Amino acid sequence: MKKLILASLTLFMVTAANAQTGYKVGDVASDFNLKNVDGKQISLASYQNAKGYIVVFTCNTCPVSKAYEARVENLNKLYATKGYPVVALNTNDPVASPGDTYAKMQERAKEKKFSFAYLEDPDHVYTKKYGAMRTPHVFVLQKTAKGNEVVYIGAIDNDQQEANPERENYVQNAVNQLLKGEKPSVSNTKAIGCTIKWKKEMSR
């Protein structure tokens, strides 16, 4: 019983810490340099012609992430050539979630034929810095004079089961508005998905 209470308290503290320390719309996001599934190091600066980025915190194992894989792929196909490539980061600790090892990431990317970068964040450095809390959790960034400004945070859409007749494609709408020279009319939504599998020894 005590272990259960401690586990619940830890989860609450982790969630609260993310809520307090993660980026907000208008903040400038830091770059990263992480290993892609092809073995190469990738950073946002690697995309020299980008106008911005669709940064997706996700994983191999979450059913919600799996449900959105094709939509994430479609976002990359729609917007990479227009200057907004998808860059995905696996949030989960591979010990806490064995299905999220680097080798499993490589298998998943090959099986699903991902056209976007799929990076490991094994120590949760950027997962924590950005404030990702769920998988998937999206941060749309726009290149500005002050850096990569966060302009949208939240869900991909409001139709996980692809059955909502009033579907709102939040990320698509945000990027379309950016391409028109406008700021997203909806800049925050609630990310729906699995909780992140943190390193057990990490007190955060």
Rank of each mutant, 00 (worst) to 15 (best):
M1A: 13
K2M: 13
K2N: 14
K3N: 12
I5S: 07
L6N: 15
A7S: 11
S8F: 11
V14C: 11
T15A: 09
A16W: 10
A16Q: 12
A17I: 13
A17N: 07
A17H: 08
A17M: 15
A19I: 15
A19V: 10
Q20S: 03
K24T: 09
G26N: 12
D27T: 04
S30N: 14
F32M: 04
N33R: 13
N33Y: 11
L34I: 07
N36V: 06
G39E: 01
K40C: 00
K40F: 00
K40I: 00
I42A: 03
L44V: 15
S46W: 04
S46D: 09
Y47F: 13
Y47W: 04
Q48Y: 01
Q48L: 03
N49K: 13
A50G: 15
Y53V: 02
Y53M: 04
T58G: 08
C59Y: 05
N60G: 12
C62F: 04
C62W: 01
P63S: 06
Y68D: 07
A70H: 12
A70P: 05
N74P: 00
L75F: 00
L75A: 00
N76Q: 13
K77P: 01
Y79V: 02
Y79D: 02
Y79L: 04
A80V: 00
A80F: 00
T81Q: 14
Y84S: 03
P85I: 01
T91G: 12
T91S: 10
P94C: 00
S97K: 07
S97Q: 12
G99W: 01
K104N: 14
K104F: 08
Q106I: 07
K110I: 08
E111Y: 10
F114D: 12
F116T: 09
Y118K: 09
P122M: 00
H124Y: 03
H124A: 04
H124W: 02
T127G: 05
K129H: 07
G131T: 06
R134F: 14
T135L: 01
H137N: 05
H137K: 07
F139P: 02
L141R: 10
Q142D: 12
K143G: 01
T144S: 11
A145V: 05
K146N: 14
K146V: 15
G147R: 10
N148D: 15
E149Y: 04
E149C: 08
D157A: 07
Q160L: 13
E162S: 12
E162I: 15
E162D: 13
A163Y: 08
N169V: 03
V175Y: 02
Q177S: 13
L178T: 10
L179R: 01
L179E: 05
K180H: 06
K180R: 13
S185K: 12
S187P: 12
S187L: 07
N188L: 14
A191N: 14
T195N: 06
K197T: 02
K200T: 04
